[in-house]
Design a protein around this nucleic acid. Structure first.
Lengths: 211, 211
DNA sequence: GCAATTTTGTTGCATTTGCAACATACAAAC
DNA sequence: GTTTGTATGTTGCAAATGCAACAAAATTGC
């Protein structure tokens, strides 16, 4: 299933190339498990993941790791979204990736004269709105008061998105624990409880809500 | 400290009026504790709170109520930021409010020809980014693994914003507990520990970091 | 195919947190 | 000034969570 990215809405391949030329966009290839560091340090750079998957991760000085976001094909990331001097953020490729970098100011400048640039800016706004929605969801999950509630809230959200009580987890449990900011073993224990109490069924990563 | 709204950056009163005329903006007055319902139902409407304070509230299908955001003078709100079909959102005035409504599509259309509209769109992007940053901060706090760390992270953030190791809390401890999604008494206990271990000083709501 | 690495699954134990129930301080309302 | 209500501060106890350590299963790399 090809990912249709909102950032390219109403763009065909040709106009995309024209636009990228106008905006002096740079496309860079990354291997799996690499640091995507082009944008770091430079302000107002937008990265578009053309192919592949990546993650935004925060490393604590203690060595603790928190997954801040999944970045899939067609998703964008930007230091514009983060208070840069507060925490050590990095974007890491999961698979091989192709990433295009664009300077935001460039888009604004060119939007005055180029209809393509304006269309792209419009798409950008919609994409940020979508990210905002995702952040809101995350906050909802994190503000529930127990691991059980976090798990159930997460599962319900996935069910809603899949329009079905059955869905595949796209996180490993190790990662899910990081995402929900809880201890992995504690998460496993609670997961077991949920299964035993017939709240859910879990046939290797395919979850079914039983209520 | 006056609120400087990014949404009006580079706009004087005159150009703002011109722009609002071009965009067919509508300004509506609300009394305190009223539902600000103009935008509901219509997609892609942006509300700008010119004067007064309001709140964004989510009503659960269970009847549960959650305060999602404080909206102060100069802040904007929009149904664009929310997955509309999942939850029932509403904005309610706290004090008397003046709210200007603009249709986002209108901004895009007019941006092609009007420099003011493009400037406004640019401001809009920066405002959303700022909201995104606030959400990220909240997530940072929520993903730390203990009450102690949540408190310290929160205090450090405030210290940073105030550019000083001493600052006034603008939350009551009761509210702070809700904000950090922890039990209030547990928060008080940890606060006491932090004071006893000389991490912080707390002279009625004036906190000083001692490290 | 085999070795190396990562993820899953489990458990005992210590610590942290939440809950409930107070007393006290403070502020607002009458 | 008294009442009423809300915020602060405290504590014992039960429950939830994190930590550490391990075995088994699955996946990846060569």
């Amino acid at each position: 299933m090809p990912v249709i990215s909102d950032i390219y809405k109403n763009f065909d391949e040709k106009s995309r190339r024209i636009l990228y030329n106008v905006l002096s966009a740079k496309t860079i290839e990354y291997r799996a498990n690499q640091m995507i560091s082009y944008s770091m340090g430079k302000r107002n750079v937008i990265g578009i993941v053309e192919t592949g998957r990546a993650r935004m991760i925060r490393y604590e000085y203690t060595g603790e790791r928190t997954i801040l976001d999944e970045i899939n094909e067609g998703d964008i990331f930007s230091d514009m979204f983060v208070e840069s001097d507060f925490s050590e953020l990095s974007v890491e490729s999961i698979t091989d990736c192709t990433v295009t970098f664009i300077n935001y100011e460039e888009i604004i400048e060119k939007s005055e004269s180029s209809r393509l640039a304006l269309q792209f800016l419009n798409n950008f706004v919609h994409v940020i709105n979508h990210i905002l929605t995702k952040r809101n969801e995350r906050i909802e999950l994190l503000t529930t008061r127990s691991i059980r509630n976090k798990l159930l809230a997460y599962f319900e959200l996935q069910a809603k998105k899949n329009n079905s009580k059955t869905f595949n987890l796209n996180y490993s449990y190790t990662d899910l624990a990081d995402y929900l900011a809880v201890d992995r073993s504690a998460l496993m224990r609670e997961l077991k409880n949920l299964k035993e109490e017939k709240f859910i069924k879990d046939v290797n990563k395919k979850i079914t809500l039983l209520y």
